Simulated assay, not measured.
Amino acid sequence: MTTLPPFARVIKEQRDRLHMSRSQLAEASELSYPYISQLETGLRKPSRNAARAIAGALGISVEDLERTIPGDTKDRSQVQEAERFSDQLLSARTGARLAASAGDGSSGAPGSREDLIGDIIDLLEEFDSSERLDVLAEVQKRAMHRMMEQRDR
């Protein structure tokens, strides 16, 4: 028996509680059905933008939903912490807690510094782990070059 990752479990169970189909969640979050399916079955890790959209569609705070995503899935303590938090979200009092957080589907202004940094990290994770430092160094080099050009104008 395979168990779902905490994030996948939370979105599936909350979607079921709201009597939403995957198609309805995809439409409400403006994400594709295949992507929702992959997230819900644990095949993919969500981007920050996807987590934000899903949180809004399910009436869960972004902060709460993001706490169900371990930073490093190979670090057992991070996975256990995400599992514990997802259990709290889905506990008997979940209905009241989730209802109270409905409408709180964003964590700050879109495009905030924290959101942009998260997006950059999500993009870096698209690269093979052996390439990430080289990619990050190249990004830093190009950014510095642009800043120098702007300064000289």
Rank of each mutant, 00 (worst) to 15 (best):
E40T: 01
E125N: 08
L116V: 12
P110V: 11
P110E: 11
M144S: 12
H145S: 15
V62W: 00
D72A: 02
Q88Y: 13
H19M: 09
L31P: 13
I60T: 08
E125V: 04
S77G: 04
L4P: 09
D152H: 08
F7E: 07
T2G: 12
E149I: 06
R67F: 05
D134Y: 01
I11K: 08
S91N: 12
L39N: 04
G71Y: 08
E40N: 03
E63V: 14
E27C: 06
E81K: 11
E83A: 14
S21V: 00
Y35C: 00
S32Q: 05
Q78F: 07
E27D: 14
L39R: 05
K74E: 12
G71P: 05
A26N: 03
L98F: 00
G95L: 09
A96S: 13
L65P: 09
T41Y: 10
D64Y: 01
D64A: 15
L43K: 15
L25V: 10
S29C: 07
G118W: 01
Q150L: 14
A55W: 03
A55C: 04
L98V: 06
A99H: 13
P70G: 01
Q38L: 08
E131L: 10
E131W: 02
Q78W: 05
S47L: 06
G71Q: 11
A102C: 12
R132T: 06
A100W: 05
E138H: 13
L25F: 06
E40P: 01
D152L: 10
A99N: 15
I121M: 14
F7S: 06
G118F: 01
F7R: 04
S86K: 03
T3W: 08
G108W: 04
L43S: 08
L90A: 07
Q24P: 02
G118K: 01
S37C: 00
L116A: 09
E83T: 15
L116P: 05
A92E: 12
P6W: 05
R15S: 11
R76Q: 12
G56Y: 07
D122M: 02
I11W: 06
S77E: 12
I69F: 00
D122Y: 02
E81A: 15
D75Y: 09
A26T: 06
S32K: 02
A99S: 13
D64I: 01
Q78N: 08
F127Q: 05
P6G: 04
A57M: 11
T2F: 14
G59S: 09
S21I: 01
I120G: 09
E13P: 03
E149A: 14
F127E: 05
R97I: 10
Q150T: 12
S112N: 07
I117S: 06
E40K: 03
L90C: 07
R52L: 02
D119M: 14
D134C: 01
I54A: 01
K74H: 07
V139Y: 13
D87Y: 05
M148E: 15
E149T: 05
A51G: 06
R113E: 12
G105C: 04
L43N: 11
